[in-house]
Design a protein around this nucleic acid. Structure first.
Length: 491
RNA sequence: GGUUCCUUGGCCGAGCGGUUAGGCACUGGUCUGCAAAACCAGGUACGGCGGUUCGAGUCCGCCAGGAACCUCCA
């Protein structure tokens, strides 16, 4: 299947037609989490955004290699490059081996991603497993004269790089701005310029995570891992690089500078950045401490949460906004998403009950074209969802015998809904309503009661009929009367 | 301070110069024993002030308010 995908490229600030380097293959690299804390709502944004891209590319018959890293080394605590490694700090506090912390939070991250129905990337490399590759890049940049050694650490020489290249091309900055706006921080005496960034850092005595190198016992600079791992698994030139907008500068800018020195060109053709999730109008983030973890979202145990929200509700909530817009958290918005999702999945589940007619009263082809057009337009999931609600309306109209489809149109509709709802958006009915665990006995019991209610209704015994309905509802069984009987589900 | 971006109906959220976005909530109707669900119908929004244009949430300028990045952050 051919698509006509356009994606917004941060590099050019325009929507561009997506043309992969190799006609049938796509290389996709996305910055993954730093595993020193529990995943929160903010982490779902890139995970879900690029999950949909991944799914859509595969749906379009590309062979996709999706690489999403785990950062388990090298992130420094505040105060520029003088702080201590985040993971090492956490480890000391909890008296754990650093890798124990990494393992724990990596497992947690995976578990929550599974619940959100985020597909696993093709490769999930760890920074700590690629120290050699990172050191090779350090050597390469040093050899090309664009880095310097200082007191056992190695720094990238931004000023020298900027003579032949534009440091800031991705984030729209220039070196003069950076000079005038960078603050004076302590411990920067090792650097020639405040905007230089570390390629290798000598480890302080208390620093636990360290590796030997010819410069010092130390650890790689943060920006290096993505350059090293993307090159290793996708090549020095690949299609798409994604991540959160907050990584645009300096992280991705530095990545570009490093890779450009080593390979002579930018690593990725398309740079995609998802926007932030906000809470009370402010970015939800670790440093601000205003985040809600996924554990809290799913359990409802947080002061800002009026109730628990299922993973599918969270997923749907994320998709109802375009990935490049901020999305504000609120209970009202989540509750609206939950209801909308229920309605969508309810209709989806009823597709099998539809029967064909001689004629079609609405155009499935048109619906299909609109759905693909929405996806092709920079993965516009809110528009896609709007079209899916048109489908919901049509499905319900058919159930009410107010609309019809020919048998070929009907199978088209079923295929389309399967493709869009399940394959691409990754929504699953099983996750949404907890109808699991309603075993045979329970089902038969409820059926028995509802059949008794039918009898009561036939006898115009409204008291008994309403009692059965109300008490079942109080127990969480949702009852819908239909033309030829009843329909129920467990809430 | 520098750079970039945002401000849409009760709420959330699309929109990229000219036709109803959509969801949730609300109101009326149909259906129902009554409900629920579903269907039909309804409200006509675009921060303020100018400008460009036959025509502007949509382009330009100014003003007001808010945010992100400039330090780790998805």
């Amino acid at each position: 299947m051919k698509n006509n995908l356009f994606i917004y490229n941060t590099l050019t600030r325009k929507k561009e037609e997506f043309k992969p380097l190799n006609p049938k293959h796509v290389g996709l690299y996305v910055c993954g989490p730093t595993v020193y804390g529990d995943p929160h709502l903010g982490h779902t944004r890139p995970a879900i955004t690029f999950d949909i891209l991944f799914r859509y590319l595969k749906h379009s018959d590309y062979k996709v290699r999706y690489v999403r890293n785990i950062t388990d080394v090298g992130h420094l605590e505040s105060d520029g490059d003088t702080g201590e490694d985040k993971i090492a700090k956490k480890a000391r506090l909890e008296e754990l081996e650093p890798m124990e912390v990494v393992q724990y939070y990596t497992d947690r991250y995976h578990s929550y991603m599974d619940q959100l129905n985020v597909q696993k990337p093709s490769i999930e490399p760890r920074a700590s497993g690629h120290i050699i590759e990172q050191l090779q890049i350090v050597e390469d940049i040093l050899a090309k004269g664009l880095a310097y050694e200082s007191n056992g650490s190695v720094y990238f020489d931004v000023e020298a790089y900027n003579k032949d290249h534009h440091y800031g091309e991705l984030s729209g900055r220039n070196i003069e701005d950076l000079l005038s706006t960078t603050r004076e921080l302590d411990g920067q005496s090792e650097k020639r310029n405040s905007f230089d960034f570390a390629l290798w850092k000598k480890a302080a005595p208390e620093h636990i995570m360290r590796w030997p190198s010819r410069f010092s016992e130390g650890f790689p600079g943060w920006h290096l891992e993505c350059s090293a791992m993307s090159a290793r698994y996708l090549g020095t030139e690949f299609d798409i690089h994604g991540g959160g907008m907050d990584l645009l500068f300096p992280h991705h800018e530095c990545e570009i500078a490093q890779s450009t020195v080593c390979n002579g060109h930018t690593p990725a053709h398309y740079w995609m950045h998802n926007n932030m999730i906000t809470i009370d109008g402010q970015k939800m983030g670790k440093s601000l401490g205003n985040f809600i973890t996924l554990e809290q979202m799913f359990s409802g145990e947080h002061e800002k949460l009026e109730q628990a929200y299922s993973p599918m509700t969270v997923r749907f909530f994320i998709m109802q906004a375009h990935y490049r817009s901020t999305l504000d958290f609120s209970n009202e918005a989540l509750q609206a998403s939950q209801k909308g999702l229920d309605r969508l999945l309810e209709a989806f589940g009823k597709l099998d009950q539809l029967t064909a007619s001689d004629a079609s009263t609405f155009s499935v082809q048109e619906l299909k074209d609109k759905c693909y057009a929405a996806l092709d337009d920079d993965i516009n999931t809110p528009i896609l969802i709007a079209h899916l609600f048109d489908a919901v309306k049509n499905i319900n109209s058919m159930l009410a015998e107010k609309a019809t489809l020919t048998s070929s149109d009907l199978s088209e509709l079923k295929a389309l809904m399967q493709n869009m709802v399940v394959d691409i958006l990754g929504l699953s009915a099983a996750e949404s309503n907890s109808s699991e665990g309603n075993d045979e006995l329970l089902s038969e019991t409820i059926n028995l009661l509802l059949n008794l209610r039918i009898d009561a209704k036939a006898n115009k015994d409204w008291g008994t009929a309403d009692k059965i309905r109300n008490e079942l509802q109080a127990l969480g069984v949702e009852i819908k009367d239909t033309k030829d009987g009843f329909d129920w589900s467990i809430k």
